[in-house]
Amino acid sequence: MHVIGYGTTEASAELVPLSFERPDMRAGEVEIEITHCGVCHSDLHQARDDWGNTVWPCVPGHEVVGLVTRVGDGVTKFKEGDRVGVGCMVNSCQACGPCEQGDEQYCEGPKSATLTYNGPKKPDGSNTYGGYSTGIVVREEFVLHIPEAIDPAEAAPILCAGITTYNPMKHFGLKEGQTLGVAGIGGLGHMAVQLGKSFGAKVVALTTTEAKRSDILELGADEVVVMSDEEAVKNAAQSLDLMIDTIPYPHDLNDYIPLMKPNTTLCVVGNIIEFPSFDPAQMIFNRVAVSGSLIGGVAMTQEVLDRCAEHGIRPLIEKIDIDEVSSAFGRMQEEDVRFRHVIDMAGLKSRMNDVDAKKIDPPARGEVVGR
């Protein structure tokens, strides 16, 4: 399967066209023509090696929507022409405790879960390439049905931003009438606001950007607290039953822990770099837990897609052509997007034969368990 994608070969380089061959489809696998791919802040972190684990070349993209073009022997859930999605994973052992419980993202198998991109497999170090590309081949177990009610471009961010914020709401038992705090109202946070309302919760948005207030209220938030407003922050003290912290870069948790009621949880889903300072006293004296959560399993990702279809929840998106992705990265850094870029792959597919793309090695693939 000949593919053109956009990626980078070093942290300081712009994303450029890259040419490679996807491995041939095997039994139990699904071949997908990609129509749309969301642009996640983690794509920027990975391409710039902010986490120190990037394997080159790096072809980002884990909010993938497309059409099934072929299915392998034994595939029963999908057929040619189906509109489908692929999230942050393309493989796991399917046999360990977390996998059997539907938490494939925490796979304890010998190679752990395989990420859709930058998922190198030891000992050979072969890499995976993601959805900033024209096509992909994925195991049936990691392919999702996109509900007819959801536009394919709008479906893409649900596959990461949606599941990443939905999972902790489910895990920590958000209930009707409780108060949910959402820290950081970007790609993840604007989905968290809408999903929190679907649980019947009161939603308080915590932002550093006053200019976002009207947009946040239109999303359905009940209150907006601008974190530079000392009086507003003081009035919000000990008011939250659950907080989802979506801020994707280092920041001071000490500003947010005082907003939690006693015996509640602040869940970090955005920042995996570091916290520059941390005062445990605020936790200890109110028995506040600081936790973390990583995306969600395949079944729960399907669940959040279906929930968004049922409740009319949609990300606010700006569609771009793939050759605009480097400028989209810059706009993300400047917080100049409301609230998610989505790549429309039609432009790249129409000019595949004319793209001057550097040839790179084929990507890694996962083994099909139980086939």
Rank of each mutant, 00 (worst) to 15 (best):
D215N: 11
T165D: 06
G292R: 14
A211D: 15
R351T: 13
V59A: 06
R307N: 06
P120L: 06
M300L: 15
V30E: 00
S133V: 08
I257N: 02
V39F: 07
L174S: 02
L266E: 06
E108M: 13
C58E: 13
G85D: 11
P120H: 06
I320E: 08
P362Q: 12
A47R: 00
K358Y: 00
I284T: 15
E230G: 08
Q238V: 01
L217H: 00
H2I: 11
A346C: 10
A289M: 12
D361R: 12
V138N: 05
P120I: 05
F275R: 09
P60A: 13
V337G: 03
G173K: 13
H190N: 06
K319T: 13
A357I: 07
N353E: 15
I272K: 14
P157N: 03
M352C: 09
T264G: 03
E140Q: 15
C308W: 03
P57A: 04
R22E: 13
V68E: 12
R331V: 05
G131I: 09
A205Q: 08
N254F: 05
P110F: 05
S239M: 07
V30A: 08
N91V: 07
E108N: 13
I247Q: 05
V65K: 02
Q302Y: 12
V182T: 09
G85H: 08
L240H: 01
